[in-house]
Design a protein around this nucleic acid. Sequence first.
DNA 1: CCCTTACCTAACGGATACTAGGTTAGCCAG
DNA 2: CTGGCTAACCTAGTATCCGTTAGGTAAGGG
Lengths: 204, 204
Amino acid sequence: MTAAARREVIETAATEVFAERGYPGAAIDEIARRSGVTPPVVYDHFASKRDLYRRLLERHFAELREVWRRHLPGDDPPRERFARSIDAWFAYIESHPFAGLMLFREASGDPDVDAMHAEVAARSRAAILPLFAAEPGAEGLAGSVIGEGLEMAWVVLRGVLQGLAIWWTDHPGVPREQVVATAMNSLWFGFERVTEGEGWVPLD
Amino acid sequence: MTAAARREVIETAATEVFAERGYPGAAIDEIARRSGVTPPVVYDHFASKRDLYRRLLERHFAELREVWRRHLPGDDPPRERFARSIDAWFAYIESHPFAGLMLFREASGDPDVDAMHAEVAARSRAAILPLFAAEPGAEGLAGSVIGEGLEMAWVVLRGVLQGLAIWWTDHPGVPREQVVATAMNSLWFGFERVTEGEGWVPLD
DNA sequence: CCCTTACCTAACGGATACTAGGTTAGCCAG
DNA sequence: CTGGCTAACCTAGTATCCGTTAGGTAAGGG
């Protein structure tokens, strides 16, 4: 097998194993075995386990980032663009279930690896948030009663999508439209309400 | 130190280490060191690393379950009870930040441990979901256009709370009311809309 | 004075990231 | 055809870490 093809096979296998076992639980031995190869071959392509992991993080986060960049901006009504983005997002998860699982595994056990994960994830956030900030009415979000408005909205968005994505991989029979509908129903009312300036639920 | 006190110290230290490093990354050595003790002492109190982990899962999940059980049922308007429950939930996270982090770490790397985690978490879900199902209008949720209605609502709820909880531990300066307000604003509109029979966002 | 209790030192065994060095198979110059 | 070079892959380790255990010490109470 050519080096490039082997490298691709290893990356696919490694994504699976990292998703299933997490960073410390993923053994190079098993990654190699699933790639039809012995461990030293992995080191012909990647300098270390960390290097391999970083490479996969960069790749999958970039692909997911691209989903937002391609579907969110536009001239259609916000709700349609938002719905399409979420649909495309789950379509990516559907075709790359292990990539999603790997990205959403929060903590690895290795502080350096955690820092790496946080750094790459922060780059994604920095790329995607401006797309939302460009929406009309977004200043309502940013300046709302909630101090860290945009940032916390991001946390909520991420929490819902991530939770549904993980749940979905355990319930593969559920059609994508249902998952997308749940995400929309959970997220849309809040965004709509704020961007239209109707304000927030008051705190008693 | 008495055995009971030492055991408590070890449980606290272990919760911290599991939260910071995840199951495979947590070393008995470090748990022991933070407990002011050597590793064999840990084994005087717990049969194994897995046993210690299970014990902590049971304990913290039970405490969080109790929060819902105490605050959600009642005769006040649903929104107030829901808001109070969420406030109490984040109050628990505030006083037990490591417990929250430990519970929300999805995957451990060890299949047996993952199964254990899933089992205890499922017990919590089974205890809390009926509280929501008892709400007037909940049949709208369960029988909605979304097939697995209640279950997916649970996933969303959990996703939002978990995301905010993790974010909050990284931003300790943010007052609890702001986090609670964000959670309410993210979750309440959807629930309200469905339980009042106003239906869902249609899918285009 | 002994026995229990809390804790220790020292080590074993297994797993794991990573490496040194060799083997095979195809390709290409002569 | 042939000899040698390269590229893909291998066997066989090494060093380290980690869960766990065996067996012992020391202090305090009865």
